[in-house]
């Protein structure tokens, strides 16, 4: 590892005794280029936070703010006293950690391997095809998955039967213990190609001369990957990892809903579906908001922790 691009970028240490105003003046372009958007984000993302007050009310649509009934922490109490909530949290965290691991490693591996392909046209074709499933809806994908795993002529069972691995078809979709793995696999299948794009762009930013030099030194392909490609996309990997750790709890619910059935209900229910079914779906805005606040708080704690850990260990961070 001779030239890590990152190590080059040391902050410019120029000591001056200028006043605050002259500092602002000297960075006026940077300020002009960022602060209008800070205001923008303030308007569209921060102002709507007044909605969090709903969690402390028994909010009824149509009544004015002053007419709403304030209930203190009752909605949170209800949330934390609900036995189902803990079950739902378990499922959410289990599936999102599995997805974080698989959904994070697979795109990196695929991107690196794609990069190693020599034929330009083959490379492009594979890449284009691998991202197609992203555009197929979950309704279709889950239908295909359920059909493939079915005991009634499903491909997987037939294959296992022919290989004499099993002698009776397995009802994969009806087994609680299989559900998390099925969801994770289906998710990787659908999104892996799409998620490689970011890494491909990062790899494209690596200086080709590094590879040339390595070749001259006689480094094998694995060594090249390990010492040039991976370090070259390390910043991107770190940033994405921090952001997805922060996003751990925001798992969505569509795939779980479509792949789930009453037999696996105890393993398929996730926090977003819970919030929909017991919050907005019932017109219970206050309860839904309470779940939302809980999500945000957990996310932000995770974000800051991950950020701090990475800053200490790798020196790279989002903030």
């Amino acid at each position: 590892m001779k030239t890590l691009p990152l190590e080059v970028s040391k902050p410019m240490v120029v000591k001056t005794k200028k006043s605050v105003w002259s500092k602002i003046l000297s960075q006026k372009y940077l300020i002009l280029m960022s602060f209008p958007f800070v205001i923008w984000v303030f308007v569209f993302s921060y102002i709507p936070i007044w909605g969090w007050t709903m969690a402390f009310q028994n909010f009824k649509p149509g009544l004015s703010f002053s007419q709403q009934e304030w209930v203190g922490l009752q909605n949170f109490k209800e949330l934390f006293l609900d036995h189902d909530f803990y079950l739902v949290m378990r499922n959410t965290l289990a599936m999102s950690i599995m997805e974080l691991v698989a959904g994070f490693l697979c795109p990196i591996v695929l991107a690196v391997l794609l990069h190693e392909l020599k034929n330009k046209y083959f490379k492009r074709t594979v890449q284009t095809i691998s991202y197609l499933p992203h555009f197929v809806s979950w309704v279709v994908v889950s239908g295909i998955v359920i059909q493939m795993l079915s005991t009634d002529g499903g491909v997987v069972n037939q294959l296992l039967m022919n290989l004499h691995v099993i002698n009776k078809p397995i009802e994969f979709m009806g087994k609680e213990n299989w559900f998390w793995s099925i969801v994770t696999t289906a998710d990787v299948w659908k999104e892996v190609g799409w998620n490689t794009i970011i890494y491909l762009a990062a790899i494209a930013g690596i200086d080709p001369q590094l590879y040339e030099a390595a070749k001259v030194d006689g480094a094998s392909r694995f060594r090249q990957i390990w010492h040039i490609t991976i370090p070259g996309i390390r910043t991107t990997i770190t940033i994405l990892l921090i952001l997805s750790i922060g996003n751990l709890i925001n798992i969505g619910f569509e795939k779980q809903m479509l792949l789930g059935n009453p037999l696996v209900q105890s393993h398929s229910n996730v926090i977003q579906l819970y919030a929909l079914n017991y919050g907005i779906g019932l017109g219970r805005y206050s309860f839904g908001t309470a779940v939302g606040i809980f999500n945000s708080v957990v996310s932000i704690i995770l974000l800051f922790s991950a950020n701090r850990i990475f800053k200490k260990t790798t020196g790279e961070s989002v903030m």
Binding site: S9, Q27, L30, G51
Partner: peptide, 25 residues
């Protein structure tokens, strides 16, 4: 790295990834 408001702006932005006021607001 020399931009003074850098840390403020990036934190200010990063936070918005993880909360939303919800549908009604």
């Amino acid at each position: 790295k020399d931009y003074k408001a850098r840390k403020f702006v990036s934190t200010f932005l990063a936070l918005t990834l993880f909360f939303s006021g919800g549908l009604v607001p």
